[in-house]
């Protein structure tokens, strides 16, 4: 009796595997894909394509019956029930976290936007290498050292810094020229690394994706749903360049950024000092910091409290002012 009741459940489970991309180690979906003949390459996106379908139909095959469609009748399921199961599975797919590849697709697109909006790349290979040496070393001791981090300098005199998902960090030459030592640079980069390692922007993007009922970005990027990809990147772009993250996440990035730089051995006052410098200069410079971040004064006060535990030791840790200045001969 028990065996009989298990069989249909097992069969249904196998069929479900074809519809859902599991993130676990045993992926029925992939196994079934491997034994299914490869699909013909899809045509590139055309403007005549219909707009992105609502959530419930985004990942449906285009008129091709899926395994569930074929297997449903075998299990005694009517088409209505099969449809409901499919809807549930598509909802489940939206709940799957973004893959690292998808994270890079979003982050890479946003990084391109950063360079496009803020004056392109600053043409100094030696300085860029130095920023990478500091940044990659700090990132290595972050809580997410298993991804590759990339650091670039944008050619704008305004003090700005950006982190986009997937490991991209951009700082402006204007900000770099305001800093006084390497510990401050490590703190600033640490703050940006913390946004990536703590997945701050990514979490908001994921939340939005679920709210909007958007499924896999891979589907979106397949050429049929480019509007969907635009929608995701549009949201992320607005978050990074206009509205900013939740202020709590900025304070968190300050704490973690300080911690990451401290782990590498830098004086833990680096980021705090840079906040003071930026706060002082804010009145005479234009920066998007003011609209996307809490005030420097508030961040400085909050961080001062948070890093008290380091103070007793801070004198032992280097700030590396001389090395820093060797890359900034025109430092005022």
């Amino acid at each position: 009796m028990k065996r009989l009741s298990i069989l249909p459940i097992a069969a249904l489970f196998i069929l479900l595997g074809a519809q859902v991309t599991f993130s676990g180690p045993f992926d029925f979906g992939k196994i079934l894909k491997e034994i299914t003949p490869p699909k013909k390459p899809e045509k590139p996106a055309e403007k005549t394509e219909p707009p992105p379908a609502p959530a419930s139909s985004q990942n449906q095959s285009q008129g091709q019956p899926g395994l569930l469609d074929l297997g449903g009748p075998l299990l005694g399921l009517d088409s209505k029930t099969t449809g409901r199961i499919k809807q549930g599975l598509q909802g489940l797919q939206q709940l799957q976290p973004l893959t690292f590849e998808e994270e890079k697709e979003i982050g890479g697109s946003l990084a391109v936007e950063v360079f496009n909006r803020y004056g392109g790349a600053y043409p100094d290979a030696r300085l860029t290498r130095y920023v990478n040496l500091v940044g990659k070393s700090v990132a290595e001791l972050s809580d997410r050292p298993d991804i590759e981090y990339h650091f670039g300098i944008v050619n704008t005199p305004y003090p700005n810094a950006f982190a986009t998902p997937g490991g991209y960090v951009m700082v402006s030459i204007g900000l770099l020229q305001m800093l006084k030592n390497e510990a401050q640079l490590a703190g600033v980069l640490g703050h940006e690394i913390a946004h990536i390692s703590r997945k701050h922007a990514l979490s908001s993007i994921e939340e939005n994706r679920k709210l909007q009922g958007i499924g896999s970005i891979a589907t979106a990027a397949s050429g049929k749903q480019l509007e969907v990809l635009d929608q995701i990147i549009g949201f992320a772009s607005n978050l990074i360049f206009e509205t900013g993250l939740d202020p709590k996440l900025e304070y968190e990035a300050d704490r973690y950024g300080t911690e990451f730089a401290y782990r590498l051995g830098y004086n833990p006052n680096g980021l705090r000092e840079s906040l003071k410098i930026l706060g002082t200069s804010q009145k005479r410079t234009g920066s998007i910091f003011s609209k996307t971040h809490p005030s420097f004064e508030s961040r400085y006060k909050t961080l001062t409290q948070a890093i008290q535990r380091y103070d007793a030791k801070s004198g032992l840790f280097p700030v590396l002012e001389t090395r820093f200045h060797s890359y900034f001969p025109t430092q005022p």
Binding site: F100, E101, K104, E105, G108, S109, A111, V112, N116, D146, I147, E148, I217, A221, L226, L229, D230, I233
Partner: peptide
């Protein structure tokens, strides 16, 4: 995770 290198075709297409 890090075997994925380079700017993705999706990002290039987006740009």
């Amino acid at each position: 995770a890090t075997s994925i290198r380079g700017l993705t075709p999706v990002s290039e297409q987006y740009a």
